[in-house]
Simulated scan of single mutants.
Amino acid sequence: MRFLAWRIGVFIAAAIWPMLWLYEALANFLGPDPGKVLVDRLGLGTLILLLVTLCMTPLQKLTGWAGWIAVRRQLGLWCFTYVVLHLSGYLAFILGFDWSQLGVELGKRPYIIVGALGFLGLLALAVTSNRYSQRRLGGRWKKLHRLAYPILGLGLLHMLWIVRADLKEWAIYAFIGAVLLVLRVPAVMRRIPRLMGRKEPFATKT
């Protein structure tokens, strides 16, 4: 109950965007190809949510506030929800559920393979995000969930392959991802004090 309002806020903030985009598509506000726009927005939303999720532990260590960690799992599950919607939109709006076309698309657009690998990684993290998996896997759980960083790399590569003509927005996300990766370096972690005056070193959680 301690962070209930915070969790409700995260739920509303994450849920409202797909509903808004769907409304815009139904109202013909997304141009001549609303399906593609939806797929692109859901893909970008997945990347942003993954970055936000990975920010939670550094923010907790910097500020000492436990609320960041309280919503980390929730944000991760929303990230997986977005990627499921992204994949579903691709199958529905781009392929029209024509599975024979999938092989052609894979040959013409290898970034789909990169995206599929990222999806499988997020699936593994989502399935093992519960407390039962934490107890069952023990120390291996942390190692598994460090896959979030390679998955972020796959997501950035997937996006880079798509938006090659305009790299400005991509560079922002790549820079944030690089900063988060640097914060994982133990030597860097030890040199960043908490803003709230506590002296504990950074943990190595995802």
Score class of each variant (00 low, 15 high):
168 K>D: 10
124 A>R: 01
15 A>I: 03
74 Q>H: 02
20 L>E: 13
82 Y>L: 02
47 L>A: 15
85 L>M: 12
125 L>I: 00
96 G>P: 12
99 W>G: 11
168 K>I: 13
150 P>T: 04
206 T>Q: 10
48 I>V: 15
26 L>S: 14
32 P>A: 05
199 K>W: 14
37 V>Q: 07
131 R>M: 05
171 A>I: 10
112 I>P: 01
147 L>Y: 01
200 E>R: 11
80 F>S: 07
8 I>R: 11
146 R>G: 10
6 W>R: 07
35 G>L: 06
136 R>D: 01
36 K>T: 13
65 W>M: 09
205 K>C: 01
117 L>Y: 03
20 L>N: 09
161 W>Y: 03
167 L>V: 13
183 L>K: 05
145 H>F: 06
166 D>S: 15
5 A>V: 09
202 F>W: 15
77 L>R: 12
206 T>S: 11
12 I>L: 15
85 L>D: 11
1 M>D: 09
52 V>W: 01
108 K>P: 08
84 V>G: 11
102 L>I: 03
58 P>T: 13
169 E>V: 15
171 A>C: 03
134 Q>N: 04
5 A>T: 07
107 G>V: 09
184 R>F: 02
171 A>Y: 05
1 M>H: 07
31 G>F: 08
135 R>D: 02
18 P>Q: 13
112 I>V: 15
56 M>D: 05
175 F>V: 07
66 A>I: 01
146 R>P: 03
77 L>P: 11
101 Q>Y: 10
78 W>D: 01
28 N>Q: 12
169 E>C: 07
157 L>N: 01
177 G>L: 01
114 V>C: 03
96 G>S: 12
15 A>P: 06
104 V>Y: 13
17 W>E: 08
15 A>C: 09
40 D>F: 09
123 L>Y: 00
190 R>Q: 14
44 L>T: 11
176 I>D: 02
152 L>W: 00
57 T>S: 06
174 A>L: 12
87 L>I: 10
120 L>Q: 06
5 A>N: 12
121 G>N: 05
99 W>F: 15
27 A>P: 11
160 L>F: 07
107 G>S: 14
